[in-house]
Design a protein around this nucleic acid. Structure first.
Lengths: 364, 364
DNA sequence: TCTCTCCTTGAAAACGCTTTCCAAAATAGC
DNA sequence: GCTATTTTGGAAAGCGTTTTCAAGGAGAGA
């Protein structure tokens, strides 16, 4: 689609000055007489000139654009971060490239290189599996400013912003403990990502602090999806002596658990309490509204963007930012129901019976 | 962050050929002796050379990048479209700029111009309020290929892909009618966007086809959000003679309605049936699982991307694509409960009583 | 052996901008 | 009124590619 674009030369001719002068006006350099500047601006307006960002990028060696690399942009968590970055960075005139990686390490590496070849200034990385040292060497080699989002990266001369998940999950666990729960199930995200591990650690610390012995049969690893939560709940509640409360590493899995328990006719919160994490949009509109660890998602993005802007302008690695999550207590948690040993058994039996029936049905 | 980048000249020197030859090898042009080509590739590997996309963009006059412009990237609907575009376009080596507009027309215009100044090849536009003619003239002026996503644009020599919302909503309405519902509430999205209007039209057509007289007091305009749905439900059910079913223009509003009815103790679906639209992730995990018009969201993005690739390579406006939605029947709809006239009144009264109590509580 | 192709290769000119270097003009200092 | 300094604006040199054009070489047909 060839189109004659207005160039700086045409403006120069129109205003009766040289291209150099037009450039100076466009970039607000001093050393241009006000009346000349005005004549140039007039010409720009008249011909509807817009600087060719690519040509500018070539001479400057960098382009006013950032890359945002996330595992899955269709996940609300990440898309909210993107939005925050967008909104914060846009007023400076910068644009953002968006890239999806599905969390695949090699694709992340690939994408970082591709972005560098487009001369972007900086890169926001939500890549929980990529080692900090690699991020640093890679970005140094490529001449790109990195800001790591939502991953705890300490002592690494690397700009990063993350949430204190350990404390958050201590608090969430203590909320359940204070309601009398002792058998608290935990559904972790993939333990290869540090955040998942931190959340599990918070849960463990809280248990220990309150003299509750950890029961590894109550701890499951899943994948942050609704289906994952559903399946895990199925396993968890089919066993004897099921938990009276379930703490999930994110809301989607909590929704899966909720959905499973609904289906089995188990009442939430009266029979089982549930706590999620993230506080996504629908969390407050579920039935019952979900008690959850509210992550400052938007703030995560805004902070990252601010760090980036500071980074690129001062050329100094900004200090890390640690944000805090907040427990939002809604109606999916309540005091533990005093189950008699026999009724506990009954619940487990009923559930495993249901499951069996279901399986038979599936097999047909 | 200044970094000495490997240039084509360095490769040329290393391989003992001219830059032109290196360029030919990089771009897989014929007319290079295999042994020379191999020597060049060797040098590229050795020095880890990556083409400077900006320089290439300058000479070619365009850059292998597309812009994606959406109202709100944190909305699952749009982020799924983005993901689909991404995934479809990535294998060709293209990247995408992402831009949020909050649906503000002027910002959309602004962004389109900014993107053009970056010499992008094409632009995916989810901008339901922008007139088709404007899109066409703007993109012609700027030399950018436009593909309009999720908006019905006919007879305009403009590439577009959309969903047949009228038929979809006829079907959804008929589902309710077949269950005996006659008083069906409708919550529309902003009627300034064509899709909202089409959905309402579908509802009206279905009603007319089945001899049900339209009752304008059952039709509301809202804003596609959970809160909007909640508030609208509140209004709707406070009136005398409330509907026995509610058809919502999207799932988020349906969730709002569901949430309101839950709070008021109204049983879904036995007392009131609900139908949503989109089939977002959580729709199947709600309580009850939501009957909804499943939009082929991902397909919308994939199709748009394919059209774009065809468009840019052939330089011919591709034919429009019309996709079809599918009604997914879950458990939020059931046969209408035979309400006696008195009990109808009772429901309304109860609700309006609840509302009053609530308001008093709020005022304190 | 000589001419005519065809293929391979290199030199050089763009692409549109920024920036450095200079010269001219304007101002200041004495 | 003359020199020293600052302002102003033009010319030109890149930035790293691609692409055009022409030259050189190899093979084929006479």
């Amino acid at each position: 689609m060839a189109v004659k674009r207005v160039t700086i030369k045409m403006i120069a001719q129109e205003a009766g000055v040289s291209p150099a002068t037009v450039s100076r006006v466009v970039n607000n350099k001093r050393n241009v007489r006000p009346e000349v500047a005005e004549r140039v601006r007039e010409a720009i307006r008249k011909l509807d000139y817009h600087t060719n960002e690519v040509a500018r990028g070539l001479v400057r060696g960098t382009v006013d654009t950032f890359g945002v690399v996330v595992p899955d942009i269709s996940n609300t968590f990440f898309s909210r971060i993107c939005k925050a970055i967008q909104n914060t960075v846009m007023p400076t005139g910068a644009a953002v490239f968006l890239h999806n990686t599905d969390g695949i390490l090699n694709r992340e590496r690939q994408i970082i290189k591709e972005l560098a070849s487009k001369l972007i200034a900086g890169i926001f990385l939500v890549a929980p599996r990529m080692p900090a040292t690699e991020i640093r060497t890679l970005s140094e080699e490529l001449g790109v400013y990195p800001v790591v989002v939502d991953a705890r990266v300490e002592n690494c001369r690397l700009a990063a912003v993350w949430v204190d998940n350990v404390t958050a999950f201590i608090e969430a666990s203590e909320h359940l403990i204070s309601k009398g729960h002792k058998r608290i199930g935990f559904i972790a995200g993939p333990l290869a990502v540090a955040n998942s591990k931190d959340r599990l650690d918070g849960y463990r610390i809280a248990l220990r602090n309150h003299g509750i012995k950890e029961d590894t049969s109550l701890i499951y690893e899943s994948d942050f999806t609704i289906e994952g939560g559903y399946k895990t709940a199925k396993e968890m509640f089919r066993k004897k002596n099921p938990p009276t409360a379930v703490l999930c590493s994110n809301d989607l899995m909590a929704i899966g658990v909720l959905s499973y328990l609904h289906k089995e006719g188990v009442k939430v919160p009266s029979e089982v309490s549930i706590v999620g994490c993230d506080d996504i949009d629908v969390a407050s509109s579920l039935f019952p509204p979900l008690t959850t660890v509210s992550q400052p998602i938007y703030e995560l993005g805004v902070t990252a963007a601010q760090m980036m802007l500071q980074y690129t302008s001062t050329n100094e690695v900004p200090h890390n930012s640690i944000l805090h999550a907040k427990l939002i207590i809604r109606n999916s948690t309540s005091n533990v129901q005093q189950r008699k040993s026999e009724s506990e058994t009954r619940l487990a039996e009923q559930l495993s019976h249901n499951a069996q029936v279901q399986e038979e049905r599936d097999n047909r």
